[in-house]
């Protein structure tokens, strides 16, 4: 009897161990399958992202024209960046750009989304209208606004023709003080419609009962917005802020197309400066260091984002 019990216990243990073993094997097989599915993507990433990234890291420590052999110079490019007035000026423009994009399109996006959420008729029409600039090519948008804001043939001279002369002859892209805000205006025109749609989607997920409860507690529209809407869309808001900051640090296309950083560097950002260093001044090593510097800054922003998530922020 005792033997039988022992045998049964052993059999049960063996069965349990066997089940556990087969469970582990299954998990291993699943992990292996997952890796096999990911392998092509990992290989592509290694080829088109990791490889060039490592090459950029290497070239940032060299004196390299972009063609021919590179000469190792250690940290020279990085120390040169710290002493480069053009870099600090461009970085200042990046920060100004960030401030503009953290305020104007986000405010417009929130406002636009809120207004759209209040209507049911024509909502889809407005959504499409807001979204059209976002899907248009940047060169098309830029050319459109270059013509509209042309000092001799644009809106300024058209308004002057009907007796409103205050914009006549104003060269938005040729004036050192106006060039950067003017390009930011064009970029914002293309970007804010996308922000509206993001916020609108987030607004629709906010529980309507919360608004009713707030109203019953005597909350006005503004208090509802601050105490219900903003907490309700916090994840989207933080995501948009994150995207805005990273996008502003890496901005390139609209500035390059419209002003190429001019006049006299007034709208230069690090992205356009980097392009000029690499392709006009034949300083590809220095450009690589500039690029890595900007990537480093973007990395810090992402780290802060991840840190906030770990601290329990719903982002």
């Amino acid at each position: 009897m005792e033997v039988n019990e022992q045998t049964l216990r052993s059999a049960a243990r063996a069965d349990s161990a066997s089940k556990a073993g087969s469970g582990r094997a299954l998990r291993r097989r699943r992990r292996l399958s997952a890796w096999l599915f990911m392998l092509p993507l990992i290989l592509v990433n290694a080829l088109v992202i990791l490889g060039p990234s490592l090459a950029t890291v290497y070239y940032s420590f060299t004196e390299w024209s972009g063609i021919g052999p590179a000469e190792w110079v250690g940290l020279q490019n990085y120390t040169d960046i710290l002493a480069d007035g053009d870099f600090w000026s461009a970085l200042g423009n990046n920060l100004l750009w960030t401030v503009i994009f953290l305020t104007v399109p986000i405010t417009m996006g929130l406002g636009g989304a809120f207004l759209l959420s209040q209507i049911t008729r024509f909502r889809m029409v407005f959504r499409i209208l807001y979204f059209i600039p976002y899907v248009m090519a940047s060169v098309v948008n830029a050319a459109l606004w270059q013509n509209i804001l042309d000092p001799g043939r644009g809106i300024g001279s058209a308004l002057a023709g009907i007796g409103i002369p205050w914009l006549d002859g104003v060269s938005f892209f040729g004036n050192e003080r106006l060039a950067l805000p003017a390009v930011a205006f064009v970029d914002n025109w293309h970007w804010w419609g996308f922000v509206v749609l993001l916020f609108l989607t987030a607004l629709q997920s906010v529980d309507k009962e919360l608004y009713e409860a707030a109203r019953m507690d005597g909350a006005g529209r503004w208090q509802q917005f601050v105490n219900v809407t903003i907490p309700g869309i916090r994840a989207t808001l933080v995501f948009v802020v994150l995207m805005t900051i990273i996008g502003s640090l890496l901005v390139f296309d609209y500035i390059y197309i419209i002003t190429q950083g001019g006049p006299a560097g007034a709208s230069e950002v690090v992205g356009t400066l980097m392009y000029k260093e690499a392709f006009a001044r034949f300083e590809a090593g220095y450009a690589a260091a500039l690029g890595l510097g900007m990537s480093f800054m973007s990395g810090i922003i992402v780290m802060i984002f991840l840190y906030l998530r770990r601290r329990g922020w719903e982002v």
Partner: peptide, 13 residues
């Protein structure tokens, strides 16, 4: 026409 227009005028214009 002006310094600012010199900076912004395109070839076609």
């Amino acid at each position: 026409g002006s310094r600012q227009k010199f900076f912004s005028n395109g070839f076609d214009a």
